[in-house]
Design a protein around this nucleic acid. Structure first.
Lengths: 197, 197
DNA sequence: CATGCTGCCATAACGGCGTTATGGTCCTGG
DNA sequence: CCAGGACCATAACGCCGTTATGGCAGCATG
């Protein structure tokens, strides 16, 4: 391995973080190989040696976004109230998404369509994140807080509601509500869980 | 001179429909003023005289997408079972979204972020579509099929769940389920409505 | 040690993109 | 009849992603 100076990590890492920063600060339109290469002090060829092209770089940013989302949710401390833990996990999920709305949008918005589709790397992390939620649901069922059922579809329903809310909040479609988190998200998740009792 | 016959409507209309077709068939990456102008038998300047630029054209396509979505949902025939009508409306919503997944993605995905944000035209149609759902919820409450409550937040919760499902189905995130519509969407909406009884 | 090889990146070019400037051709209203 | 405006064709500017080419370090091999 090449010894890397403390202030100058490897180029691959720098490009990913720079891309995530530009995406977060200025949106997808500002992402360009030339711009990133200039800011990283290298040339556009670095994008091709490390990622094979611009879609590959975006894919790496998406994979990083999934990893961070997974970590944020994994950091919530579990209590003896599995329902409260589900709410805390949802809050962490939402907070992370709202902190990086453009990254979240690219993760799911263009994740499948034209551009590049998701590859093994993101898929693996995505599955791990979903299994994390399945575990929380199973735990609630084992504790008797939720009716016993196949946990995977229940987790998918929970995640679907949460994801739908986050997307619409990011896209600013709740402008007619004072406090959409209290008026939409919490009742939605609460009622879903209530019907699962 | 080639004056326009009955099969050659005005250029503005042709550009919108061509853009929607290209978007649906080949995805957002294939959308370009030059390509559309070539296919429409005109020059790129037509895009600027009619829409002020490429974002304006996309905005027109989005507005058209909202209008079509609204119409499809409005076409469902109401019965004397308001809960069944809600399910029928959701099915029409999903069917229209899956028939034009790229258009749906542009409507909500990049609807707010960097590119162009939604303007008065789309906002107006979007509000009308939402009021349509509020009316269905109100009707179910009046008939005693749902508990009396402020219908707008309830409609938002229903729409949030439905939208979240459609987005994830389009992005192909339900690959671990045989029949996601039966395993995720229907239980999710059914349980939400059950908790609202 | 010399040698060739491989990974990595700088430079420059190609085609395509959105956009703008300019000018021409109609159609319309006075 | 003619002035003006709506509409579009042409060409150019500066971006973009991508590719071809070449230089240069590090390293394994003879």
């Amino acid at each position: 391995m090449s010894s890397e100076g403390p202030g100058e990590p490897d180029v691959r890492r720098r490009l990913i973080e720079l891309a995530a920063d530009v995406l977060g600060d200025e949106g997808p339109a500002a992402l360009s190989a030339r711009r990133l290469a200039r800011d990283a002090g290298t040339s556009t060829m670095a994008v091709y040696t490390h990622f094979g092209g611009m879609p590959g770089l975006v894919q790496a940013v998406v994979a990083e976004g999934f990893r961070r989302l997974f970590d944020r949710v994994a950091e919530v401390e579990l209590t003896d109230d599995p329902i409260a833990d589900l709410a805390a996990a949802a809050a962490a999920y939402r907070a992370n998404a709202l902190a990086n709305p453009h990254v979240y949008s690219v993760m799911f918005g263009s994740a499948s369509l034209g551009e590049y589709r998701l590859h093994d790397e993101e898929l693996e992390v995505g599955i791990a994140a979903f299994q994390q939620l399945v575990g929380l649901i199973e735990r609630a069922m084992a504790a008797g807080a939720l009716r016993r059922d196949d946990p995977a579809p229940v987790a998918a329903q929970f995640w679907t509601a949460l994801h739908g809310y986050v997307v619409l909040e990011i896209a600013d479609f709740y402008s007619m509500f004072d406090d959409p988190e209290a008026q939409v998200l919490q009742p939605l998740l609460g009622r879903l869980l209530a019907a699962l009792r």
